[in-house]
């Protein structure tokens, strides 16, 4: 390259490596996305609260005090002893809320993990191998989509009895459909890229191609679906618990708290509104995070 034997400084137009690495680019977009930052911070705060529940909670969430039943929260004229008041058995509402975050987040994470594993395996296999595998997976997806989730979950929980493990298991085995659909479509798209053909022509084994060529390029979609399905699982758990077929009392669960408060709703609406609002905030935050992640990772770095 013959450049002018120019003055002291390097010519600003002359640079042959352009732009930041994909990692740097992602980080920049990540921190520049407001919705994503808000959602992620809310989820992070709730996660810390859930993890540190024994330290933070002012009372034992199971301790009943029948003399101090249905104390109103501070902002409705209550005392600082029970900041968010107490429920119909005199248990501290704030402490139950804090322990309830554990249940919600645990169910969200584990259910998304189980369904994510099932759905991704099916979707990637269908997308990569095509043909008969694809036909079978597509059929299974259709069968699954024909089943009403809430009804099936209700039936199974009714038979097996409600408990944390059963709820997680049922949701994990039911919510894989979106993973399968999205992963199948993304795999189909990536499979046609020439770098996959190049790896095949080098003689790379199928597991190697799936793990090192396909997976890294569909991971962004997977993460988005994980967040959305987590929110979905948390809502379903609340629904099941509200119907009395989810997590069983006295375990503190937000859905259960709404359910227990519903009889007193006309007189003490905060019993329903507080857990409802927290549930709303968590699900909204997770969805904000999912949407943000999609925005941040979607425009693939084709300058």
């Amino acid at each position: 390259m013959t450049l002018a034997p120019s003055t002291n400084s390097v010519d600003p137009l002359l640079q042959d490596i352009v732009g930041p690495t994909p990692g740097q680019q992602l980080r920049r977009r990540f921190f520049g996305h407001r919705g994503l930052m808000i959602g992620a911070s809310v989820v992070a705060v709730l996660l810390v609260i859930a993890l540190l529940a024994p330290v933070i909670a002012p009372h034992d969430p199971y301790a009943q005090d029948l003399l101090a039943r249905m104390k109103p929260p501070v902002f409705l004229g209550g005392t600082w002893e029970h900041i968010l008041g107490t429920d119909h058995l005199g248990r501290d509402y704030l402490s139950r809320l804090i322990y309830g975050a554990r249940v919600s987040l645990l169910i969200g994470f584990v259910a998304a993990l189980i369904s994510g594993t099932i759905g991704t395996a099916m979707g990637v296999a269908a997308g990569y191998f095509g043909g008969r595998t694809d036909a079978v997976v597509t059929f299974l997806i259709n069968v699954r989509l024909a089943m009403p989730v809430v009804l099936v979950a209700l039936a199974v929980v009714a038979i097996l009895g409600g408990s944390l493990q059963v709820v997680i298991g049922v949701l994990g085995l039911l919510l894989w459909d979106r993973f399968a659909v999205v992963m199948r479509a993304s795999t189909l798209q990536v499979r046609g890229r020439e770098y996959v053909s190049a790896a095949q022509a080098v003689g790379a084994s199928t597991p190697r191609i799936l793990l090192s060529e396909i997976m890294p390029n569909i991971l962004n979609n997977l993460i988005v679906v994980i967040t959305l399905e987590m929110a979905h699982a948390i809502l379903l758990e609340a629904t099941l618990s509200f119907l009395g077929l989810g997590v069983q009392p006295p375990t503190p669960s937000w859905g259960l708290m709404v359910s227990e408060g519903k009889n007193m709703m006309l007189f003490e609406p905060w019993l329903v509104l507080i857990p409802g609002a927290v549930l709303f905030v968590l699900v909204l935050a997770i969805n904000l995070m999912g949407d943000g992640l999609r925005d941040v990772t979607a425009p693939e770095n084709r300058s």
């Binding site: 390259m1 013959t2 450049l3 002018a4 034997p5 120019s6 003055t7 010519d11 137009l13 002359l14």
Partner: peptide
């Protein structure tokens, strides 16, 4: 074009 030109000189700036 000065970064790719065989005739480039400081005057090209």
């Amino acid at each position: 074009f000065r970064t790719r030109c065989e005739h480039a000189s400081p005057a090209c700036r």
